[in-house]
């Protein structure tokens, strides 16, 4: 009797292992757990057994039933998973098909580089101060220690308006005077971004308009050594931790001493390449200690205050960073150019 049950259990489990689709599973259920299955018949006929065998047979019979039911549940899960998997297989995609194109807006490359410059200087405590693009001759030149007819004026090719004494600013330096006059005698740390204009032929290398970001720090203890450290910090933030800088004497009428700042060419690592014209260095900044006359024109006593100023061209920096060879791309606004940013 009990051996029969053992055999039945083994047979049923073996059969279940063979069932691999819902049909076979249903048939198995019918065969081993259905109403006319031998196990059901056995359990239904328990009462016909001798009383002494009944408890043991009943216990064992129910045991087998539970085992088969549990096995069925497991089998059902296994087969459902297999069926689902099979169905999913048929839904496979060609993952190399292009994604749905969304319209992505972009900032102009000049805005991008300006924002990067703003962010670096903001962290160093320099905030943004803006002044007009159309300027008085006085602010653009005279107050910056460049008197009328002075040979230093040759350094800037200027657009004049038909209004006497009004011009398109050739640099953001007039903002120095505006800022100083607004804040003197309080110490000052600002950057002066904006569009500048030069009377120049439009070529791959020169444009009639371009951005400039000028910086100015005035205080009771600002030194040339501070200027060097500040610009070296900026260069590292802008061009990478390892960026080396070198400082060359130069001349700007509104600073003294004046200097030109080069950063080691990040294209060739200083070995020499066409971008740095084989010098290993890229000119990125003009700077210097604010000229005493300019400090005085701004409302500071040059005996008590000192300051430094610097200026850079965002488009030039963007050109160096991205290897852009033609400055005309910036205002040309060809989408094939703009969409690369």
């Amino acid at each position: 009797m009990l051996e029969q049950l053992d055999t039945l259990e083994q047979e049923a489990l073996a059969a279940l292992a063979q069932a691999n689709d819902p049909g076979a599973l249903a048939a198995w259920k019918q065969t081993y757990l259905g109403r006319s299955a031998s196990l059901s018949t056995f359990l239904g006929d328990l009462g016909k057994l001798p009383a002494a065998e009944r408890p043991l047979a009943g216990k064992r019979g129910n045991e087998v039933k539970r085992t088969l039911e549990a096995a069925y549940a497991a089998g059902e899960e296994r087969i459902n998973a297999a069926v689902l998997n099979h169905a999913l297989q048929s839904e496979a995609l060609d993952v190399t098909l292009p994604g749905r194109p969304l319209r992505r807006g972009r900032l102009h490359p000049s805005t991008l580089i300006l924002r990067r410059i703003y962010a670096i200087w903001a962290e160093m405590g320099f905030q943004i101060y803006r002044s007009p693009n159309v300027e008085l001759d006085d602010y653009n030149f005279t107050l910056l220690n460049i008197p009328p007819h002075h040979p230093a004026r040759d350094m800037w090719d200027t657009f004049y308006t038909t209004e006497e004494g009004v011009l398109l600013r050739t640099h953001t330096s007039p903002g120095q005077i505006h800022a100083m006059r607004e804040f003197a005698p309080a110490p000052l740390r600002v950057i002066l971004p904006g569009m500048c204009f030069r009377y120049e032929q439009i070529t791959a290398r020169s444009e009639i308009q371009f951005h400039q970001v000028e910086g100015l720090a005035v205080g009771p203890g600002i030194t040339f050594a501070n200027l060097k450290a500040t610009l070296a910090d900026f260069a590292r933030r802008m061009f990478g931790e390892g960026a080396r800088t070198q400082f060359r004497a130069d001349h700007f009428p509104f600073t003294e001493p004046s200097m030109e700042v080069d950063v080691e060419c990040f294209v060739c690592g200083g070995k020499g390449c066409p971008v740095c014209k084989f010098s290993g260095w890229l000119e990125i900044l003009g700077s210097g200690m604010v000229h005493p006359t300019v400090l005085r024109n701004g409302g500071y006593d040059p005996k008590v205050f000192s300051g430094f100023a610097f200026g850079m061209g965002p488009e030039r920096i963007a050109m160096l960073r991205h290897g852009i060879e033609d400055i005309r791309y910036f205002w040309g606004n060809d989408l094939r150019f703009l969409e690369q940013f």
Binding site: G125, I222, A229
Partner: peptide, 9 residues
Amino acid sequence: EVQIADLLP
């Protein structure tokens, strides 16, 4: 190269 010693304005 010496960091600015002046107070931040």
